[in-house]
Write a protein that binds this DNA or RNA. Structure first.
Lengths: 240, 240
DNA sequence: TAGATTGTTAATCGATTAACAATC
DNA sequence: TAGATTGTTAATCGATTAACAATC
């Protein structure tokens, strides 16, 4: 225990970032900074300041600086951060410095759309399998992929070293699919259904919740309408 | 100003909920409770307790009770909440007691998948328009809808009283589409692209951020790997 | 009654914001 | 130099959790 503490302290002094866990809201913003920095890089920008990031993403400069202090990076006074350095540091902190293999479960409209989404490979997520329980669609082609039976899932996960499983099935089947993915050995699950799924300790789960987002919108819209008197500008609600 | 204060206090005493704004994390969970309560209703459950909700969604009982106290509803000691009452109260608080009309901009894979998604109408969101800037796809059929040119967007928003615009275009075009939607008169924007979009005060914006979610997963997966020594069970990360 | 639950208040925890010294 | 920015510490704010009286 003592050794462990010392190890941590050494790490911190040596300037290693990510010693203590990075809060989830911070991680969400880091991914956002990454998106923006990449746009800047494409446009040839060599430097970006916390002020510019803050204005682009509508957060405070304090937040940006606090967030970036989680990274193993140092900026330059008066100039900000070198875009290429920032990109690298963000990719590392987010664990996206290496490619990840994914499988998609559910070859309905959403599953097929995701399988065809060009942005996944570009962002380092390779879709290497598409599965469905419906025998009628098994064998059909979706882009380069052939829809496979569920029974092939565990084998593919093992053979292709799949880390992430995407759940794109109806809510009622989501838990069952999550269980199968976990049993097959994926390390993370992205749940696109609106049901909550439980996973074992060893498998991370993130829920996408499109209807939560739509609910936020309806709430904001109705709340605005109700307030005729007091001019609370609850209009814009930017949610991470 | 005095009158306004009195008004608010009266409202509060009269038992009206939603006087002071409900925090966004709470709203996200409310929408989650709604999803779960509806499953219970379908299965014939008449009562649900904060304990059951907490266990189903993996939050604390305190959180559930605190959240539900935002609603205009009263439970029954020992039994919990009547599922039908809870559903109604949640729908009201979330502004989903009435249908909303939506348009989808972008008839690529994602836009078409969303347009065909049966869950939207079931949840009270009617897709009443699908638009694309690509002349090659304008006029093609997607389910009941015909893809329309962007120039038809403002007219449709006005004619059909469209409240929500869904942005399903590449990141590079997202802001432009948001501007057009706002100018057309939508009250809320659901941004499915990974670019941040700015909207005027009067238009709410919610971003879906699938790559933030994937980043959370990669981070969790890599973070797990790194920690061989200390057994921090950072494995499961459930994110709203 | 005993046990379980609601509803609410207070305590804790964590994230965001503000402030400011150091630097170029 | 003056002005702008980083990096970090402290203050504030808000959300979550704990505690408990009231109730059936």
């Amino acid at each position: 225990m003592l050794t462990f503490l010392t190890e941590m302290e050494l790490g911190r002094e040596a300037g290693m970032a990510d010693q203590d866990p990075v809060p989830i809201p911070v991680l969400r913003r880091l991914s956002h900074y990454l998106q923006h920095v990449r746009v800047q890089i494409e446009e040839g920008g060599e430097w970006i300041s916390s002020r510019q990031l803050a204005e682009a993403l509508e957060v405070t400069r304090s937040t940006v600086r606090q967030d970036l202090s989680c990274l193993n990076i140092s900026g330059t006074v008066r100039l900000g951060y070198r875009t290429s350095d920032l990109e690298t540091a963000l990719l590392t902190q987010l664990g996206r410095d290496r490619h990840s293999n994914m499988v998609i479960v559910g070859a309905g409209n959403l599953g097929r759309a995701l399988a065809l989404h060009q942005e996944f490979p570009r962002q380092g997520f390779t879709v290497c399998g598409l599965f469905d329980s419906n025998a009628a669609v098994v064998g059909s082609k979706v882009g380069n992929l052939t829809v496979q039976a569920m029974s092939k899932l565990p084998g593919t996960v093992k053979k292709k070293n799949v880390e992430i499983g995407v759940i794109a099935v109806p809510s009622s089947a989501a838990q069952e699919v999550a269980d199968l993915l976990a049993a097959s050995g994926v390390q993370g699950v992205l749940n696109m259904s609106s049901a909550h799924v439980k996973t074992p300790e060893s498998v991370s789960a993130v829920e996408s919740r499109i209807f939560s987002s739509l609910s936020l919108l309806s709430h904001a819209i109705r709340a605005c309408r109700r307030e005729d008197g007091p001019k609370k500008e609850a209009g814009t609600c930017q949610v991470s």
